[in-house]
Every structure is written in C-alpha cells, then in structure tokens.
Design a protein around this nucleic acid. Sequence first.
DNA 1: AAAGTAATCCGAAACGTTTTGGAGGAGAAG
DNA 2: CTTCTCCTCCAAAACGTTTCGGATTACTTT
Lengths: 338, 338
Amino acid sequence: MATIKDIARVAGVSVTTVSRALNGYSDVNENTRQKIIEIAKQLNYSPNTLARSLVMNKSKTIGLLVSGLKRESSKDNFTFEVLAGVNQYVGETDYDMILFSTNSTKQREKTYTQLCRERRVDGAILQGIRIDDPYLQEVVESDIPCVLIDIPIESETVGYVTTDNVLGAKKAVQHLIDIGHKNIAMVNGYEFAFVSQKRLEGYRQALLEANLPFCTHWVVDGKFEEEIAEEKALKLLKQYPEITAFFCASDLMALGVINAVKKLDKSVPEDIAVIGYDDIFLASYSTPALSTVAQNIFAMGYEAAKLLIEMLEGKAKSHVKILETELKIRESTVKNHC
Amino acid sequence: MATIKDIARVAGVSVTTVSRALNGYSDVNENTRQKIIEIAKQLNYSPNTLARSLVMNKSKTIGLLVSGLKRESSKDNFTFEVLAGVNQYVGETDYDMILFSTNSTKQREKTYTQLCRERRVDGAILQGIRIDDPYLQEVVESDIPCVLIDIPIESETVGYVTTDNVLGAKKAVQHLIDIGHKNIAMVNGYEFAFVSQKRLEGYRQALLEANLPFCTHWVVDGKFEEEIAEEKALKLLKQYPEITAFFCASDLMALGVINAVKKLDKSVPEDIAVIGYDDIFLASYSTPALSTVAQNIFAMGYEAAKLLIEMLEGKAKSHVKILETELKIRESTVKNHC
DNA sequence: AAAGTAATCCGAAACGTTTTGGAGGAGAAG
DNA sequence: CTTCTCCTCCAAAACGTTTCGGATTACTTT
C-alpha cells in the first residue's frame, strides 16, 4: 500500500512537504501541491490513520459502550435507535465509531476503561449501563471524556443527555385527568432507575396540581417488563376496583397492563384507560393503539454524539442536553364516562 | 499514560524484554516476568493498540458496513439483529468492531474502500448494500477480506452468508398447499434482489411439484414496502377473485396484503390465507398473528463475523455459510374450506 | 581446557505519520 | 551592497510497539 514516502520519492520532494501539501498547509507552493495530489491519486494513496493517531495522540474515534445489545432487546429498539442517532452524527464528522458491548462472554476480562484506553478512543458514549454498574464509576472517574444517556452525572469530563421525564409524565397524567379520570394508578419501572424517579415525580405533580390524592399503594414497580406489569396491574385492579386509568413508565409495561385488563373481561379504553411511555414501534400497531409519551431516542443518540464531539473539540457550552417529549394520543385513552 | 518504556525503566530491563514478557514469550525468566507484570499493574499500563497495529500491520478490527442504519429501519430490525450477532461473535474474540454507514451526509466523499484502508480494518462485513451499489464492486475487487450478507459472491478474499431462500419459500408455499389452497399468489420484493429471485424459485418449485400451474400474472413486486404490497394485492384480488392465498417475500408486505384483504371486507385467514417471510417482531403481535418463514438474522450476523475472522486467521474451510429457515405457523394461515 | 548448548537478555530498526526548527534563495528595502 | 522578509522546502525527532539478530553468562559435554 502506497505511503507518503512513495509519493515523496516519485515527486522528488521530502515527506514533510508531502504531508504538509496533503494537509493543506500554506507553506507549500501551489504547483508542488497539485503535483503531489496528482501523484497521490495515481498511487491510490490512503493515509494510515493508525500512524497519524499515534503521533497526534488522538484517534478521531469515539466508543459506544452499550449493554443492551442482545437479541432480546429488539423489542424496544432503544439501543438500536440510540446507535442509529450516534452513527448519524458521527457520519457527519470525520470521526468514526467503535462499538463495545458487555454482553461479550467475559472471557476477556477487560473493563470499559481498559478497552477505551487500549483502543485510544477520544471519548465515549454510555448507554444502557445500570446506575449501579461498577464500570460506570470507573469510566466516570477516569479522564476519558464521556457522555451518558439517561444518567445525570456531570463533571469536567462527563456530560449527559436525557429527556424531560418529569414533564413527560406530567403531560401524560394531565391528559388522563383532562379526559375525566380521577383514580389513576401508575406502573413504574424500578426504584433505582433515574427515569423512574423522575416519572414518578411527574405523576405526583400532576395529581397534586389537580387536587387529586397521591396514594403510594397505587404505584407499583413493573421492572420494565411486560409480564411483571401485567401481574401487578391485575392485583391492583382486583384490590382497587375504583381505578379507571393507568400511567405506565414504558410501553411494554402498558401492553402488559392492557393484557391484565382484558383478563378481567374489561376493555381498554372504555373501562380502563392506559397510557404508556417511549412510543416504541409496537405502540401504534397494537390494538387498541397505545397512547404514549414519545421520546425521540434517535435524537438522544444524535445529541449525545454531538455533545461528546463538542466536548472533545473544546467548544461545548454546556455538558447537559435535555430533550423534549411529545404526547401521542391514540386509542387506549378516551373520555371517561363514569 | 504509562508506556512500555516506563515499565522498562522501573524494572531496570530493556523495552524488548518488557514486550516479550507481557506477550508471553518463553525467553524471559519467570521471575523477571512476574516483576514486570507487577510493575505494569502498578503503573496502570494499557498497551497502545495503535502502535501495535502499526508495526504488526494488522489492527484486530473489523468494519461493519451497513446502509440501513436509518431511523426508519427500526420497523424490520434486520440491520439491528445482524449488528447484534456480529457484535456477539466479535465480543468472543480479541477483535473489535468499527461501524461505517453510508447514510452519512455525503460531505465526506469517501468510499467504503477508502474508509477501510484508512482505518486499517483487517476485514469487513457488508450488509444491506444493494446489488447494484457501485461500492459493492469496489470492495469486492479490493484486496480487503470481506463477507457479504445475502449476496452470493465468492472469491479468494470474499465470502458470504445467507439463508436457504429457495427451501424457505418452498416450505411456505407447500404449507399453503397442504392446508388446501390451490390458487396461490406471490408478492415478491424486487427484481434485482438476490433473495427475491430465490424465493420466487422456491414458490415455483412448490407449485410444480404439486402439479399446480405457475402463472406469472399472479406474481407481483411489492418493493418490500407495506403500502406498495397492499396496493398490488388489492389489484390482484379484484382481477382474480379465485385467489385464496398469498405468499409474501417479507412480513411487512404481508401486513400490507392483510390490509388489502380487509379493505375488500374479506377476512384473514377465513377467506384469504397470508404467509410472510422474515419473522419480524411485529409478526407475532399483529392480529391475526402472521404465519411466516423465520430467518435467524442474529445468527447470520454471528456467522458472518465468525466466517470473516476465520478467513483472516487463514482457517476457513469454506467461504460460504447457508443457514436454515423455520416455518412458523400462526393464525394467518388455516385450512381452506373452499 | 575447549567447545557446545541453553537460558536470558538487549540494541536498533521498523511501521507511517506529524511537527519543530531551521535552511536556502529571491526579491524588497535601506 | 547589505540587510530583511517572504516563500518554499527539508532533516530529524517523536509517537509506542514488535522483532531480528545477536550478546552474555552459566552450565554440560567432549
């Protein structure tokens, strides 16, 4: 493969000149530059990024660290959409993306930090990492610039992007209230999840502002899983028949709740209204079509990449980016006739 | 960041010895080795992959070239599952994966080959590239080892993985025949797609073996799109009311066909049976649940990565891998009572 | 005692770039 | 004629590794 040396030899100049010509420095004569470019083309020259990175001490590469890259995770394509978003922005720059995933058989006992350091990525984006993952601490404490998705940690080298979960939840619950519901239960995700805490807060706020009582017994954790949500909702409905609406912290769980309702021979939305969160693909296809709070996950990936690269280039004004959500009203919520 | 030199200095040996110690060569005393390893740990040493790659002339990196990494492609999560599969296998080795996508704004006018050469990937996997994409030719003609997904090209440096599309289609159509259908139409993808050609072949074989007529008017192209399939099916049903079953080259198109049937106030599967191809996530969730030919797309990614890395290490026996498909019978096909 | 062998180590070159600190020459200004 | 400035170029060092071809020492074998 042709190198800069080959070009230098053919052009009868030094490697320095070739390097500077190709990189657009001004201290090389325009004629020489053209000649060099021409020769480079003829020799089908591609610069060796490895060598360049080595000497420049930066690789123009960012790492995407995910943990949800398993077969099963295609149900909610959260991971995929983040990835697509990151990829989109990265493609608009001269950076490339390298993918690290934990679900590798742990035979290679390497931490994220080691992977990042070895591959000399300039920065990293972390997605799907649990808040209690020891690696999270490690990465955050290392000097590798990184941006987190849906985990609010901020420092000199760390930023994050998330959505306005409080407001999103609030809008959903307010919608339920608007259409006449007064007894609204919530199926949350799980206690330690940042988004769960925020969505609970939104739920609470909406109730309080409408002068409705907030009752902790009406809030259950569904662990973001369809089956668990179904089970919990079933219990709740049996115990508190006055409940007429559910706010769920994920669409998948909302589908579970709908199943529960059906099992009791009631129907959605006539007897019980259900609203989800996420706007996964399935939401618009299920029957009844699911009302939900849409998060633009693609945008989260995009913004995460943007933020990271801005940080790397030293032109990030802020280290956090909060995206908006959008209420999507479909068939699973409708005016309450009670 | 600590380098091999730092270790050498502290240990009082040469860099050569450190390198050889760390890489497990036998010509270094076990005591020295232990001391070196100890020091390496203390200094929190991580090898610089860039430098290593540069001198070894291989990067232990493979490139995944996809074209379908757009927001919209989350409907059929083909791309995602391939990626997950590739990632899975790669994670089991000491390789890493770097992602290239064409949907980058073309401001960076670089071809795949250039990207691969610049980043010095050892090999590449291509997915979602159209058979008439000029880059395909370029990559295949270059000396970069690569494996293609669903494109049957084979050479010294090129391999591919695909599923047995002829057999898959045949099984689907035979199933329709088994349950009593005689007038079976097909909605294919598009003419130049390799898989479309094969599935058509399977359709034809099944008909012939059952002594049913093969009629080209009953085969239409839906371009793998839901709406187009719906439209074409509508026309077909109006023109040939004797049709009682559809074999579709993708699940998405099958959903379109079901819509068409509904528009004519007929029902699936009672009036018209429909079978799809792919087994996308939606297939099992739609009503009626869609019978289909399942492809293990995750496995395709996995096997592609496996094949590529075997090729790179010179221990690939064959350059092609053909995976099996599985017929999944759900609600959209049922015994024909006509 | 000489020669051979095995174990352990090391110097230096190489990989392909970028960058630093000038060098050489031509023309302009004094 | 001398000095300055500008333009164009270059030699060499540096980045962090691996590897080739010995070199040294100690021990065995003749």
